[in-house]
Design a protein around this nucleic acid. Sequence first.
DNA 1: CAAGATTGATGTTTCAATCTTT
DNA 2: AAAGATTGAAACATCAATCTTG
Lengths: 158, 158
Amino acid sequence: VSSGSRQDEYLTDAEIRAWGGCLQFTTAVLRALDAALLAAHRISVKEFEVLITLFNAPGGQLRMTELAERVLLTPSGVTHLVTRLERDRLVSRSVDEADRRSFFATLTRAGHRRLRESRPTHNEVIRAHLTRRLTASQLATLGALWEALRTGDVCGTG
Amino acid sequence: VSSGSRQDEYLTDAEIRAWGGCLQFTTAVLRALDAALLAAHRISVKEFEVLITLFNAPGGQLRMTELAERVLLTPSGVTHLVTRLERDRLVSRSVDEADRRSFFATLTRAGHRRLRESRPTHNEVIRAHLTRRLTASQLATLGALWEALRTGDVCGTG
DNA sequence: CAAGATTGATGTTTCAATCTTT
DNA sequence: AAAGATTGAAACATCAATCTTG
């Protein structure tokens, strides 16, 4: 039971800096996004993410499961969220006639409008927290690191 | 009202890669941490964060406000969380006699034990998701980027 | 029975209002 | 009045169980 090595017990300083920084930064940005979007456009980050994800999807619509994966929610989480968005008339549901088990979430005209209005607010927060604090090269490096983490590649810092 | 420039409307690809990757990675790791800690030690990530934060504090204790800042919760959020941890006997509360408005959260003996038990699980998830997927140099670069973001410095990619 | 989605209950976090101490 | 902390209510996400279609 007590076969703990020093490596099990303690993360290295490098690991702490990498993960701790990630957690702090992400949380701070999410809070700022939420506050800004809520104050200016009565919309949460998650709601914004749904709108923009649908906007970027072909035809402005996506199956619930697909949507859930892209906005990082569980199936039931996305059901509840879409229900709220439907209540606010920003999104509508419709059956997929090809496979009646599936439902599409579709961006309404009001949803398009709300997205257009809130997008500058969203982008400004990202720029204030990320873009303006890094050089173009650093920004690219950060993006490359996420790519490396996704694929599990081990390579230069390009 | 409609003075939106292209820059306001759309993030660049580099910005999307940097922020989107950050959000996805952080969410995935938090989910994995929560699942692993809950399954093996009946403790959530947030609870783990409180325990380790107290452990790293001088005397194993911290004022509620300080704790809230470090574990990224609002004051009331930390109050509720500490209440739960106190119910589970992992943490205890005590007044700061020097300033009776303040309360200390202190790691109990059981809290120390639970932390010791769960720490390897936590570290293993971090290593699986982060350390093993990057070179030492990439890991250091990532840490340096968070540091640059904190300070607002603009400099080389270190 | 499996896949897609939903439902209701549970647990957690936040906000606004409040209480106590300085 | 301000700082530290708490309270209760509301918002949100998750889980397990369920419903429907394939």
